[in-house]
Design a protein around this nucleic acid. Structure first.
Lengths: 376, 376
DNA sequence: CGCAAGTGTGAATCCTGGG
DNA sequence: GCCCAGGATTCACACTTGC
């Protein structure tokens, strides 16, 4: 049993969580409360030159195009479509929320420019580098071996979610880059109709959504996908303990997605949990180290290279070489640096060895965690 | 002596070939005859919009791109700038010509949309994946590890130049993809002032231009670079036997570029010529050795017993004693053998010693392992 | 001389909470 | 909103210095 309609926001209307909503995504999004979802993943139609696939927001069909003038009409119609769905998405998104949009060179430049025009703030563009792309059969161009994803917060001032440590961990301890090498969706993951044909022409690999959701959402966040298709976003969101809202116009895709997501089992919370960043640790004033007697007033601290020293004072400040202030301020002043992390800069002597004072902070934090009964 | 003013077109005005023209690129381009250049490479300002200073974790300051030429009032101003230079470039370009524009997420979406708006026809977007990008020091986003290049013909109907076989040969028999892994410009290639400071903040690597010009121009073609900077385009064009026209506003950049290009020696026509190789066993592409500058086109390779030699060409093929082909094919032909492992057969001279080219392959493999050995 | 260790640096939209 | 201060944060190379 998944919760279906639970979360309510400032708006009185509840969110239809973990459901696939039928209909045109613009209309459906406009029926949702404003400022209510944490992340949007959008995989809009790429088509500019494909005949008969492009519709205006009012569902009227755009005529096929092939000459230069009609090309312009094609772009104008696509831009209008983009503007409309993106504005609707923007309204639903929380101020601190973010959006991902995936596309190819056919549409991504229109999309990226419109994101900026609407006030979204691009955080990165990410290249999905396909390890097994389709070759260019006619040999007239380069193998089109990648797609582009744009990651943008709702505004420059948004406090977007970014799980830096989790992605670094996914990347064997090295900071995650903006180029992601992943195979396209094939084999058992690729959904098929009864007759064996692929259920959706552009099904995205779950690995892509996995990395994306781990990196830019937290467990319990609400992820909206206005072009849901066969539900890769929903499947991965469910697995990772995120809530999703899918919107899909085609009944056939909705049916496939429903079945698919029903089969997905949510990972247990231990598996979902990721490394907690240090920023999330409670702040410990250096004065507490002194108060608790872990360091005594008058004791001397040393920089790692032993070139600088300072004396601890009763109020938790330091004094060294005529400089007084916090552990950070004195360290910065002595080094002539713009800033300094005093916790890692200063060391005390114990049994002839130099120990960073950060070990004392970690001790205090461990005690605080034990008191709260909270896992560290 | 290079030819200076030779080619004339339908227009009576001659083209100022292999020169660096001073001034605003829009005015200068408008002074050139219409429909006269074969390729444009444009590296316009990215409009980075940097705010404060940034320091590395070791407190050293990042030398940011804060030059006046990258300052724009906003997107509207940047769009107007883009529209203007692109229209001027379009006028100068032959109907069957093409354009490359490089940028980052800050500007590339504006650029790509305007390309389409002006009627250019995007052929590919190419991702330059940097093997050694600057990290994201604060851990707030993904490492910005790539830049984007858009390749577009003047119109959908253009018969653009694409040397499929040459690029395939550079990639040792495998179709060239839309993602190119190349290091940023450092070391001896990076131009410095007298005081050791970098001469230009955003100098592009020659390997990038090498691949681009081999793939999308022919010898004798005219390449226009309206944002010439310190002249990477001109240097590579000259080496590869293409003519260039550079436009640069800053006198200091022009001076550096002049000196740089004067030092470049044009490869002989045999080295420049590209071939249609028969299918070679794909392994590590020998072309990468050339692209990365580990061996220069024109350099001679020798058999271990010194009885045979061959010359390296720009597309990674060899020519020796009227035999042309891959390192393996030429070795086999010269030995009268049914087959030959070119990697162990061929040697180059360094400091009087003969070194097998296989050491270079091992070097590349080590780098590739470092890049791809971990999940990206 | 070689190897190890240390230093410098690259198109970057790079912090956050409390008062 | 602003100001202030705590304190968190890096990868791949090339080059230099030291033993």
């Amino acid at each position: 049993m998944t919760k279906q309609v639970l979360k309510s926001r400032a708006s009185a209307r509840p969110l239809p969580l973990n459901q696939i909503l039928a209909g045109d995504c613009i209309e459906v999004m406009n029926s949702l409360p404003a400022n209510s979802v944490d992340l949007i993943f959008a995989d809009p139609p790429y088509n500019l030159q494909l005949k008969g696939e492009l519709h205006r927001p009012d569902n009227s069909r755009v005529d096929a195009v092939d000459d230069a003038w009609d090309q312009f009409a094609g772009f104008a119609a696509y831009d209008e479509f983009t503007r409309a769905w993106m504005a609707a998405a923007r309204r639903v998104l929380k101020h601190d929320g973010a959006i991902w949009v995936i596309g190819s060179y056919h549409n991504i430049y229109r999309v990226g420019a419109e994101l900026q025009n609407q006030g979204f703030w691009i955080l990165n563009d990410v290249v999905w580098r396909k390890s097994n792309p389709m070759p260019n059969f006619r040999g007239k161009r380069l193998t089109n071996a990648h797609e582009t994803m744009i990651w943008a917060s709702k505004a420059e001032s948004s406090k977007y979610t970014f799980n830096y440590e989790a992605l670094k961990s996914l990347n064997e301890g090295v900071q995650m880059r903006s180029d992601w090498v992943l195979p396209i969706c094939t084999g058992g993951e690729r959904l098929k109709d009864k007759d064996g044909a692929k259920a959706h022409p552009t099904q995205k690999p779950e690995a892509l959504l996995h990395r994306l959701l781990v990196g830019s959402t937290n467990p319990g966040d609400v992820v909206l996908d206005p072009f849901f298709g066969t539900g890769t976003t929903g499947a991965v969101a469910k697995m990772l303990g995120r809530d999703f809202i899918g919107i899909e116009r085609e009944a056939a895709y909705r049916a496939v997605a429903e079945k698919r997501i029903a089969r997905v089992r949510k990972l247990d919370s231990e598996a979902i949990a990721t490394i907690r960043p240090k920023r999330a640790e409670p702040r410990v004033p250096f004065g507490q180290v002194v108060e608790r007697g872990m360091l005594r007033p008058g004791e001397e601290l040393f920089s790692m290279d032993n070139r600088h020293k300072a004396k601890v004072r009763a109020d938790g400040s330091l004094v060294g070489n005529d400089v007084k202030g916090s552990i950070h301020q004195v360290g910065a002043a002595l080094e002539g640096a713009p800033s300094c992390n005093g916790w890692t800069y200063w060391h005390f002597r114990r049994e002839g060895r130099m120990v960073p004072i950060d070990t004392l902070r970690q001790q205090i934090r461990a005690e605080m965690a034990a008191e709260d009964g909270r896992p560290n």
